[in-house]
Design a protein around this nucleic acid. Structure first.
Lengths: 214, 214
DNA sequence: AATCCAACCCCCTTTTTCGGGGGGTTGATC
DNA sequence: GATCAACCCCCCGAAAAAGGGGGTTGGATT
């Protein structure tokens, strides 16, 4: 990671802003720290100047800081955009990540934890609060109650292609089998996965890890 | 996090096993550490005894340690299963996570990094190497090249339900509109998303964040 | 030897979807 | 008061999917 020179903090509460300012100064020693106290001011600062790091609060008086993440990353692809918030729920987290956030820190972490994560930036470590990292991992974990579905090699082949959007006919052609056969496999797959639409089958395929939604 | 009492290390290379043993002893001070040098021995140990923590190598002589993750977690739901490997690729990572891994450490990290992550377990922090955490985040990041697709509120409503597996008719009923209308929206959605199957539309819906593949 | 399973193939009917058309109403912005 | 986006409704025909049915073969297990 390059040195952090220009930092933007978007935070409406003065006390918290001060505290963040202090943390950043102590841990990252940047050349300058700008402060924005609203979504709109944040947008202006982002447009007007390039930053190496942004700390963005989500609960702003005139909207969500989430809306700033994408513009920031679009303008400064290789800078870091870290969400600093008290929202510990999946919606805010994954919304921010989908917008392009490079880190997610909870402001009600103990200070040592927060500091450690923030300073880890210099070593190229994405800043993530413990509970956030756990949520991230959980996203991939299997549901253990579920009886494991075992598809045969061929069934997986078919489902993989179907989930990617191919028709049964094209799938059959690609695998060099009759479309009757492919359709037959689809029946088995539907039965095994307990679904009755391509959409559901696709969800399952992703869940099993046959295709990635990228 | 409770104290770590019983630890299992699955690692075929004696040198590495020794090193891991040392790390665990120093950082977590457990009551006992068991060692398995193969997939099969790992399976036996898992079956025979309960552990609070498992460190599992992936590249074992008689198979992949990945196959041990799920059995371990199934037996000991609240213990931690950490993959320790040199494989820094998405396939091994996400495969392990889908199996239920609670952490993923690269053995070729610098020792201080490895130690820090390992000891973080006591504080309830999931052990993740930097590059692994980045991969995790990247999984959710948008593709910035892509022109942002803007679906209308109604289009999102329809797509959300369709992606969950509902038919057009059911979707229409649920939203209290004619099935003609719903079908009409679907056409617009297909055009906007540049897809031509439910499967693809579902992938996009996940990508956009309308539904989660859980 | 019997049985199981995966993998493969074929046929049929009904329903749904896909991709074209054609309309129309609101409500905000200009 | 025109224009636009969002919303809503209708119809058609070709294609595909859903969900039944019926099989053969070869390898592994028992």
């Amino acid at each position: 990671m390059d040195a952090i020179r220009q930092v933007l903090i978007v935070e409406d509460l003065p006390d918290v802003a001060d505290w963040l300012h202090l943390q950043v100064t102590q841990l990252l020693a940047p050349q300058a720290i700008d402060l924005a106290v609203s979504r709109e001011e944040g947008q202006e600062k982002i447009t007007g100047k390039d930053y190496d790091l942004a700390l963005i609060d989500l609960g702003l008086p005139d909207g969500s800081g989430m809306d700033l993440v994408r513009p920031f990353k679009e303008k400064n692809r290789h800078s870091l955009c870290v969400v600093t918030t008290i929202f510990d729920d999946a919606e805010h987290l994954f919304g921010s990540l989908r917008a392009g956030a490079d880190g997610y820190l909870l402001k009600d972490d103990v200070e040592s934890e927060f500091s450690q994560q923030l300073s880890g930036i210099l070593a190229g470590r994405p800043p993530l609060s413990s509970s956030i990292a756990r949520k991230l991992l959980e996203q991939f974990h299997p549901i253990f109650g579920e009886k494991e579905v075992t598809l045969t090699r061929r069934e997986k082949d078919i489902l993989t292609l179907i989930a990617k959007g191919l028709s049964v006919k094209h799938t059959a052609e690609k695998l060099g089998i009759s479309h009757y056969t492919a359709a037959s496999y689809m029946k088995d797959i539907y039965a095994k996965l307990q679904v009755n639409s391509r959409a559901e089958a696709t969800l399952k395929a992703i869940h099993i890890g046959l295709v990635n939604p990228t």
